[in-house]
Nucleic acid binder design. Structure first.
Length: 500
RNA sequence: GGGCGGGUAACAAAGUGGCUAUGUGGCGGACUGCAGAUCCGCCUACCUGGGUUCAAAUCCCAGCCCGCCCUCCA
């Protein structure tokens, strides 16, 4: 089935055809590294992580490039305030920001080109722009002449004459036209500088993306993405610069991610409601956050709230319960060949349901990465699977293996079922004495020393109590185990525990 | 003012010219010692007014309301 992508450039869904069959080049505007990664960044990069994973799922070889803006006004200001060299400062935050995304469980891009390392390429591109008649020099600064580029405004649906109203030339700027933007800025004192034919200075913000994307991915490349806020002026300017310099189309598909709000409000410094990834990971599990971002359609603005995260967490628990249920029944390795003729009616229906699940998931994702629908497919599969097990308690190892593999593969595209980034052993250390204490409170001498053994011992005591209708002891054990984060379920085939 | 995107049940959120979205929550039932899990049923869905159509929440027109961008922003 063909993948369709909503292209911001045409404002329609288009069938996706990469420049080179089987290979996809993806460029996403990355972070300006002057502060920690916040949940708005996380929203965008989880969205692209899913997009990248699905492209790979479809069999494409994806090259994912995400730039690092490490030359910028805000970095210079912050570094100067702390008396640190701006490049040292940005280097520090580059690491911190990438580590934040690691902790969130976002897969790394293939390449993270830095603006500071591509200055000569930018100078070359600016020279080309000037040579081709789209740029001009004014007292050591270089500007892009918007009027020279008739396609300007195509991406954002703006037209130049309308935009002129209201636009202003700041004092000290030598622009010919208020809409013109800087390609190169002559240095002011206290700024990092690089040589250029025009002045010691530094590049304008937009040029780094034009330069690094086309250098690394070619012209044109397949998909260029970023937050919705970058559509204008950043992406509009990127197109103008790159096409003015190379004379070739820049990027074929433009994808813009809906911006996160917090409790219905825009996230901003003035509102003081910026939440850093580092901080929120203390409250919410990385996987809950990823599912929250992944389950919102990428073009919609999700609203971050306690209620929303709580709802997601409960849904995620439901997904995990099925995973565990499948694991209990599945053959350890997928080598068993499934022979449909050996399956009973119930099993055959389930086999069909697995195929249907996969087909519907793909249909959803092929339709412009419709993740809300993909999650609906996942939950439908949970329901179907639970019904299967309710009807057939013994399962079927090879069939369940197949179901589990399919479930995990699809979950993986949606960033689910990933190994936990951190498994603090200190918690484990606290749990053991606590479990021993519960055993003692039931008049038992704890011999076991591992969590597993202790839990089994406790459940055995509890089962014994239940047999004698000693509900007080049974409830006492269950209550204390739940306080320690163990969920106890009495099932037809005996008690089962799982981590909450 | 210009541009972009929305208004769907208690909340969140997909979607389709006629066929159960889904998740969370609430109510009832099955199962349970109880709880949980699981299953089943239910909880006045589609902003307003016109139009097209055998049929529209879905297409068209008008209106009302909301968000975002136009300044740095993922």
């Amino acid at each position: 089935m063909p993948l369709t992508i909503y292209n911001s450039l045409s404002r329609t869904k288009e069938q996706f055809t990469p420049v080179k069959s089987g290979v996809v080049s993806l460029y996403v505007c990355g972070m300006t590294v002057y502060s920690d990664t916040h949940i708005g960044h996380a929203r965008t990069y989880v969205a692209f992580d899913v997009i990248r994973r699905y492209l790979e799922y479809k069999g494409h070889n994806v090259t994912y490039v995400q730039n690092i803006t490490d030359v910028d006004d805000k970095i210079i200001a912050a570094a100067n305030q702390q008396g640190v060299d701006p490049l040292v400062y940005s280097q520090r935050f580059t690491l911190r920001c990438l580590e934040d995304l690691d902790a969130l469980g976002v897969r790394r891009a293939d390449l993270y080109p830095k603006a500071s390392e591509a200055i000569p390429d930018m100078v070359t591109m600016i020279q080309q722009i000037i040579q081709n008649g789209y740029g001009y020099v004014a007292d050591g600064d270089v500007y892009f002449s918007v009027e020279a580029f008739p396609a300007y405004g195509r991406l954002s649906g703006q037209n130049i004459t309308e935009m002129k109203t209201g636009a202003r030339i700041e004092p000290g700027e030598q622009k010919h036209n208020p809409l013109d933007f800087a390609l190169w800025k002559k240095a002011k004192p206290g700024e990092p500088t690089w040589p250029s034919p025009w002045s010691q200075g530094r590049p304008g913000w937009h040029i780094e993306c034009s330069t690094m994307s086309s250098k690394l991915l070619g012209a044109p490349f397949d998909i260029h993405g970023g937050g919705m806020d970058l559509r204008f002026p950043h992406h509009e300017n990127e197109i103008a610069q790159a096409e003015a310099a190379t004379g070739k189309p820049f990027a074929n598909y433009w994808m813009h991610i809906g911006l996160l709000t917090i409790n219905g409000e825009k996230m901003s410094k003035s509102l003081g409601n910026i939440i850093n990834v580092k901080d929120i990971l203390g409250t919410w599990d990385a996987e809950v956050l990823r599912m929250f971002f992944a389950s919102a359609h990428y073009r919609s603005p999700p609203d971050f709230s306690d209620k929303a995260l709580t709802d997601i967490k409960k849904g995620l628990d439901r997904l995990y319960r099925l995973k565990e249920r499948l694991e209990q029944h599945a053959a350890p390795t997928p080598e068993h060949k499934l022979n449909a003729s050996t399956l009973n009616t119930n099993e055959n229906q389930y086999l069909t349901a697995i195929t249907l699940f996969q087909n519907e998931f793909e249909a959803a994702m092929d339709d412009d990465f419709n993740t809300p629908k993909a999650f609906a497919c996942l939950f439908d599969f949970v329901n179907t699977s639970n019904k299967f097990f309710d009807q057939q308690h013994q399962g079927h190892p090879a069939l369940c293996r197949h179901a589990l593999d399919t479930y995990l593969k699809i979950g993986d595209v949606l960033t689910l079922f990933q190994p936990k980034a951190t498994c603090s052993s200190s918690d484990q250390g606290d749990v053991i004495p606590a479990l021993q204490k519960i055993l003692q409170s039931c008049g038992q001498t704890p011999k076991a020393t591992t969590v597993d053994e202790l839990l089994n011992a406790l459940l055995a005591v509890r089962e014994d109590a239940r047999k004698h209708k000693d509900w007080k002891t049974a409830d006492h054990i269950r209550k204390h185990l739940e306080e320690l984060g163990f969920e106890i379920q009495d099932t037809a085939s005996g008690p089962v525990w799982r981590n909450k």
